[in-house]
């Protein structure tokens, strides 16, 4: 059975993602994840970490690419809705 989309505490999110609480709060301040810390935050957090570590991006780069990826997804969704 899947987990509920309920909010996690910052500590739980840190445990699930392997990212420190301090980094999570920094990502939140940068607007990379929303403060409700739900399952989608975990996905966005892993994406941000992937971009930062594997793609060697700084936080500004992560922010820019995350915004572009979200925008592409939003436009795909809008196109699908209009068809």
């Amino acid at each position: 059975m899947n987990s509920h989309a309920s909010a996690h505490s910052v500590d739980t999110l840190a445990e699930l993602s392997g990212v420190s609480s301090q980094t999570i709060l920094e990502y939140q301040q940068q607007g990379l994840i929303q403060p409700d810390f739900d399952d989608d935050s975990l996905r966005l957090l892993r994406r941000a970490e992937f971009l930062r570590e594997a793609c060697e991006m700084n936080v500004r780069g992560v922010k820019l690419l995350s915004h572009l990826l979200d925008e592409v997804e939003r436009l795909h969704q809008e196109l699908r809705r209009r068809r």
Binding site: N2, S3, A5, D39, D40, R43, E73, Q77, R81
Partner: peptide, 8 residues
């Protein structure tokens, strides 16, 4: 639509 459901 578009929401992701996590299955741990």
């Amino acid at each position: 639509d578009g929401r992701r459901i996590r299955v741990p």
